[in-house]
Design a binder for these strands. Structure first.
Lengths: 342, 342
DNA sequence: CTCACATCTGGAAACGTTTCCAAATCCTAC
DNA sequence: GTAGGATTTGGAAACGTTTCCAGATGTGAG
């Protein structure tokens, strides 16, 4: 109840000698106001230290100046980068950012959708790397708010993403071109990423490149783990120490996984790239430190772009249009010709 | 204007055959409602698919069910962990989380404070690692909303943090106890962290331990960089390759910096801990991978705790009370006795 | 059976904006 | 000077809740 100092638009109106309607128009910028009135309103508002109540404005106008960002977790580099980008773009545009971390599974997500998203508190939603079911999408769209997807392909929703299959294919091809034939692939698995088509796409790209080159995929070199350094590190140690022999190159589905492979290799006394080539996808900030060759997909920019796409939709400008982004191939020091070229 | 399907409390009231007042009481849980009425309201609400408008509720009640989290960036491990913890705790409590990334400098922060925080859209604020000026604190508190600090000490505000000086002292002491005398310290600098007393505190702890042990601090081994792996990696390479000789141990002000040191050492062919001991502070998730000895301060839990502290204040329960957290000493494989013990 | 008191309920006034509408004022061109 | 239009204004009705208040209904003790 008892709000703070709370000067309302009414006080400003009184002090400026105009009506509340005029104050509202002057401050919000919609509708015409004479220069004279505008100035008086601005002065009065400044003097009184007027701070508009967003809640009241939202209630009356239906616009909230608040965008929801929904992602599985904020603890992985890709996601925190996207978030940072989105946050910056929203701040700049004068929007609030409401964050929903849904966890990896669908359970939590359900609650987020029902208990939060639908409460008319958001002008729009950016859904990052979530594979929403058709019902969920329908539910979201029923609120008549724009929705932009990032990373995960979402049925019937404008989405920003790289071509995962193609990127994976090119990454693998890079290894093949260097002369590698014994190539392992580290990827996510349904076990860890229930929601997400990404690991599958990247595996498909890998297999495509291999089969195009007529190289056999060894099933025991198709390894699964979560998308973290630690997870991949553990798996890679097994892979590289296997008595049945080890690959000369690894294509990791993400840079974090690639870094896990590199650290595992170092721990085992293998030199990268001399004994083992490693390539990833993402553009991780530590790529430079580890000399990682990768396809940089600039997630921070993606976050900002997704927001801008959403805001454009809010302005009624553009019809939602998906875009496929072009990752940048960055060659560093983690890939080279295999030890004994055939 | 034109909201979606929009069934309001009025429709529910009609359908349940009670007044709007009763519906509000039944759904919000404040005030008395007979079991019979409550049931009818609940049924009606469910059937109509009623979704309350938070904006209207906020406007009327002054409560927003929305907490602001303010931090410099989301891209560093400590912050993303805090955020993840806070997000989980808030989700659980049915609160929204509005995120403000202020950047490292005070400029952006000013705008965040003025343009966003004061707009009565928040029930409370968690300020992470921000050293707010007295005026800023006053400004925030004037809105009569609880404020909890995390990490940075904030004048006159309940704060959750570890004792940075003491923790740094103990970390350094660990190295000294192992027999090290040639110890370098990698720390943040005002240049990179304009806002924050933390680097200073940790350096003071370092110097305290050194002087207690009667060991001289070599000024050229007091190095400054930002709190990132990459930044520290670059600096550490210079440190470890210096012709004037290198230290046998490094105390890094954060785990990310410590990891930078380790990777730099590896790159130079030094073995950790055989040739170089490294210790950090934080409890980074990659600590295990790099075998890093550290003081774990469980930032994720800190985030959750800060939120709970805030919510308790909102319930009018406790007077704001600062708490000093106890980090856990985790000994791994990055520290050992120096190469040639004296 | 009645009285005192607690519990339950509905009407209506907030909360602080935006925006529709109609009226008033200002231009411009003739 | 005036007609016609555009611009500027204010009144008042939303927006969808919560909560104050007073009245109605129930409960238990005497």
């Amino acid at each position: 109840m008892e709000t703070a100092v709370s000067v309302s638009i009414r006080d400003v109106a009184q002090s400026a000698g105009v009506s509340m309607a005029t104050v509202s128009r002057a401050l919000s910028g919609r509708g015409n106001v004479s220069e004279r009135s505008r100035q008086r309103v601005l002065d009065a508002a400044a003097e009184l230290g007027f701070v508009p109540s967003y809640n009241a404005a939202s209630l009356a106008s239906g616009r909230t100046r608040n965008i929801g960002v929904m992602l599985p977790t904020v603890q992985r580099w890709f996601f925190s980068s996207v978030l940072e980008g989105a946050s910056g773009a929203l701040l700049e545009a004068g929007y609030d950012l409401t964050l929903y971390t849904t966890g990896e599974g669908p359970g939590q997500r359900h609650s987020v959708l029902n208990d939060f998203l639908l409460r008319q508190r958001l002008d729009g939603v950016v859904a990052v790397s979530l594979e929403l079911s058709p019902e969920e999408v329908e539910q979201l769209l029923r609120v008549k708010r724009p929705l932009v997807g990032l990373g995960g392909p979402i049925q019937g929703v404008a989405t920003l993403h790289i071509d995962d299959v193609e990127t994976a294919r090119r990454a693998t091809q890079h290894l093949i071109n260097l002369g590698h034939r014994d190539i392992a692939h580290l990827s996510g698995s349904p076990e860890f990423e229930r929601d997400f088509a990404l690991p599958v796409s990247r595996r498909v790209g890998f297999e495509t490149a291999m089969s195009e080159a007529g190289v056999a995929v060894r099933p025991e070199w198709l390894m699964h783990t979560d998308f973290t350094v630690a997870g991949s590190h553990a798996v890679a140690k097994r892979l590289l120490a296997a008595p049945s022999g080890r690959p000369t190159a690894v294509f990791a589905a993400s840079d974090e996984m690639a870094i896990g492979v590199i650290t595992a290799a170092q721990e085992l006394g293998l030199r990268v790239p001399h004994d083992l080539s490693v390539i990833g996808i993402d553009g991780h900030e530590l790529g430079e430190v580890f000399g990682l060759t990768t396809f940089d997909q600039a997630p921070r920019r993606q976050g900002a772009d997704a927001v801008r796409m959403l805001l454009r939709q809010l302005d009624g400008d553009a019809a939602p249009q998906s875009a496929i982004l072009e990752p940048e191939f960055v060659v560093r020091r983690s890939t080279a010709t295999p030890p004994q070229p055939r």
